[in-house]
Simulated assay, not measured.
Amino acid sequence: MKALLSIDYTWDFVATEGALTTAEEGQKIETALVQVTKEFIEAGDFVVFAIDRHEKEDAFHPENKLFPPHNLAGTTGRELFGSLAPIYEQYKEKTNVYWIDKRHYSAFSGTDLDIRLRERHITDLYLTGVCTDICVLHTAIDAYNLGYRLFIVENSVASFDPVGHEWALRHFSGALGATIV
C-alpha cells in the first residue's frame, strides 16, 4: 500500500511575499504537485497534508532562533498555496485525505502519522512539498528509520537553497535508499 505526503506547500513557504518563501522555485512545482496529489486522492490512496503550525508567542520553539515567524496559526501564511488549496477543499471529507498539524520539521515528530500509516498497512511513501532540504528531508529520515520505502517526486519538491535541494536529492537516494521518481 502507498501514501502521498504533501509537506508544507503553504503561502508562507511558496508565495513571493511569504515569510520564509521558496518563491519561484516553489511556484514552479505547483502544477506537478497538484496533479500527483489529485491522482493519489482519486485512486483511493492515502494522502496526508503535513502542515507546519507555529504559535506567535512560542518562545521555546528552536526555529525562532533560525527563521522569521512563519506558518503562524490563524494566518493566511499557513493556508495551502495556489491550486492545491481547492483540491484539499474538494476532497477533505474523503476518508483517504488527512491533515496533520506539525510543530517540527518532520511530519512524524509529535504527530500520529506513523499510527495512521500502519493502520492502513502503508509501506511506500511518496514525498512532495517544501523545503526539500529541511522538512521533506527530516520527514524522509524519520520514515527511513521507521522502515518505510521512500519515493521522492522530484518535480514536486523545492527549496529556497538550490545547493541544499540538490544535496538532499542525492542524500535521499544515496543514504536513505529512496527512489527518485
Rank of each mutant, 00 (worst) to 15 (best):
Q35F: 09
D45N: 15
G26I: 04
G26R: 02
K38Y: 05
T37V: 08
A43D: 14
G44W: 10
G44C: 10
T37D: 04
D45Q: 14
D45G: 06
I51F: 03
I41L: 09
A43G: 11
D45K: 13
D45P: 08
V34I: 11
V34N: 05
A50E: 00
H54R: 03
V48F: 04
V48K: 01
A50W: 00
K38G: 08
Q35S: 14
F40D: 00
T37A: 12
V47I: 08
K38H: 11
A43M: 11
A43F: 08
E39A: 15
G26N: 07
G44I: 10
I41G: 04
E30Q: 15
G26K: 02
K28H: 10
E30A: 09
A32L: 00
F46H: 13
K38N: 13
F49T: 03
R53I: 04
F46Y: 14
E55L: 13
I51W: 03
K28Q: 12
A32E: 06
E25T: 09
A50Y: 00
A50D: 01
F46I: 11
I29Q: 01
I51T: 14
T31K: 14
I29T: 05
Q35L: 12
E25W: 06
E25H: 12
Q27F: 05
V34C: 13
Q27M: 13
Q27A: 13
G44H: 10
I41W: 06
R53Q: 11
V48W: 01
I29D: 00
E42V: 10
I41D: 04
H54C: 05
E39Y: 09
D52V: 05
D45S: 15
V47P: 01
A50R: 00
L33I: 07
I29N: 00
Q35K: 15
K28M: 12
V47W: 02
E39H: 14
D45A: 15
I29M: 08
E25C: 03
I51Q: 13
K28V: 06
V47M: 07
T31R: 14
R53Y: 04
E55G: 04
F40K: 02
Q35W: 09
F46L: 15
T31V: 11
V36H: 12
E55Y: 12
K28F: 07
V36K: 13
E30R: 05
V34L: 05
Q27K: 13
A50V: 04
E42S: 07
T31E: 14
K38W: 05
I29C: 01
T37F: 03
H54T: 06
V48Q: 03
R53F: 04
D52P: 02
G44F: 09
G44R: 10
